[in-house]
Design a protein around this nucleic acid. Structure first.
Lengths: 184, 184
DNA sequence: TGTCAAGCTCTGCATCTGCAGAGTTTTTGC
DNA sequence: GCAAAAACTCTGCAGATGCAGAGCTTGACA
């Protein structure tokens, strides 16, 4: 029996990380047991062992990605949407773009999966709450619509960053967003 | 030979429409020649005949979707980001959600395809220009950063509409966005 | 040290996939 | 009306896929 390249007992997490990378780089259409396993340096049937099905594997990877993103969001926590914040957010996104791309893929996939929809809905609500806190510091009443709109702007700009735009363009847009919402 | 259910000569467009629907409903991972052909009511090998490959079929569908979206965007053209605009935009999105979902899928896929990246980049730039025109009417200088940010907010809100949020929430957020950017 | 459960690999298979090549049908243009 | 091109269908196939079932390895615990 071939000895696995990962430490015994760490295969599950290696698979999850591999899922995120493969999906981000090759899309959900490029995802297969063999590709994930190769990336994780384990045997592909370990996927069935740990997750049972492809769908369950994706759900587990989504939960992992969400947790990881929220840890990193805590590092980004802002009291203002200014240039510092823009530089920090785009730097963090740029360090691990696959994490974001994977999540956008799963957001879209949530249309076909009640469980993913629940996870995605909760994730977005938590982000909207964080933005709402920031808006309160800007002097706004705590209201959902404004927070949702501002969060959507950040979400949309991150989507542009990982797809068609340059980081500097996103830094400028986020900074400008901050000045747009300043109470005058 | 089985008689096709679509009028002779219209198979190509039927396939393209079917691609958009299948991708939106089942993801790129759920896309196959047989599924698309079944949806289009033609024989699956007509795909090879018209497009040559799966990738080329997706590019053709993207071009079609972009053109169709831009026609519909012209119907949405706003002089203001207000409640009327919000109702119209969300209504149009709600009438044909698959078109939007397909495009988000292809935006993500553009990371892996120079041609898709070019198409997506152009599409986004044209939208940002439209938003810039609106901002000029609001009394803003013609500058890219603000337009990009406001377009991103609309893009992010449409993404939420087709995934995790209710239409009324999006209407409220777009309306609120309008008031946030009003010069005071 | 031995046992058992969890982690892991190997073998195998039914089904699906993209698409090649040949043949049929419809349209176009002279 | 006929020939050629475009549109379309049928048959077939090599390769890929998810995952079942059996067996091997490692770690935990008594």
């Amino acid at each position: 029996m071939t000895v696995s390249e990962v430490r015994y007992g760490t295969g599950r997490e290696a698979l999850i990380r591999a899922v995120v990378d493969v999906v981000a780089e090759e899309g959900l259409d490029g995802l297969s047991y063999r590709k994930v396993a190769q990336r994780a340096h384990v045997n592909n049937t370990l996927i069935s062992h740990h997750f049972g099905s492809k769908e369950a594997m994706l759900e587990a990877a989504t939960v992992w990605a969400v947790q990881r993103t929220q840890q990193r969001a805590d590092l980004t926590l802002a009291s203002a949407i200014d240039r510092d914040f823009a530089e920090t957010l785009t730097r963090i996104v740029g360090e691990e773009p696959n994490l974001q791309v994977f999540q956008y893929s799963m957001i879209l996939a949530s249309r076909r999966s009640p469980e993913l929809r629940r996870i995605a809905g909760n994730l977005y609500e938590s982000y909207i709450s964080m933005v709402q806190d920031v808006l309160v510091r800007y002097g706004y009443e705590p209201e959902r619509a404004a927070a949702r709109a501002v969060f959507a702007a950040l979400d949309g700009l991150v989507l542009q960053q990982v797809t068609v735009a340059e980081r500097e363009e996103i830094v400028a847009a986020i900074t400008r967003l901050g000045s747009l919402i300043e109470r005058k």
